[in-house]
């Protein structure tokens, strides 16, 4: 599936919820189920600076696909990371680099990208795209 197909799928899933609590329960569930990042990747370099919760992101190539793993000590953020991974992990670096992540707004979670939340989600999105650009450049050099 393409990035946008996955985004549309997520938007459809969220359309089923009419209550904020239901949405968050779903996200919490994703957060709880997201496999923890192994401790060797929970390094300072992989840490995304956020004010309130700690967020880690690890990226590596598998063939021509860029894979992401992530973690956080706060569950809702971890659930949102889970959604980002579902959308972006396993895609080509160039597609990640140019992706527009409209699903965050459509599912009503854009406030988590706002400055005030300081939960590092905006930095997380930025970092994922930066990885896309970096690995794309690396491939081109080869």
């Amino acid at each position: 599936m393409t990035i946008n197909q996955i985004q549309d799928e997520i938007i459809e899933e969220f359309a089923l919820f009419d209550d904020w609590t239901d949405k968050y329960e779903y996200i919490i569930d994703i957060g709880k189920k997201l496999p923890p990042l192994s401790s060797e990747y929970k390094t300072e370099e992989n840490k995304i600076k956020g004010c309130q919760s700690q967020v880690w992101l690890h990226a590596h190539m598998d063939g021509d696909k860029l894979l992401f793993e992530g973690d956080s000590d706060a569950v809702i953020v971890k659930g949102l990371i889970g959604l980002l991974i579902r959308v972006l992990s396993g895609q080509k670096p160039e597609d990640i680099a140019k992706a527009t992540l409209y699903f965050i707004d459509k599912i009503g979670m854009s406030q988590h990208l706002a400055q005030t939340r300081s939960n590092g989600l905006a930095s997380m999105v930025k970092q994922m795209k930066l990885y896309g650009i970096a690995f794309q450049a690396k491939q081109e050099v080869k």
């Binding site: 904020w20 309130q52 919760s53 809702i76």
Partner: peptide
């Protein structure tokens, strides 16, 4: 067992404004 940020987000959905951090 519950991160303060998670507490703050859920309370906000109930209309309750607290500070976390």
């Amino acid at each position: 067992g519950v991160h303060h940020q998670d507490i703050g987000i859920i309370l906000d959905t109930q209309g309750i404004a607290v500070r976390t951090g």
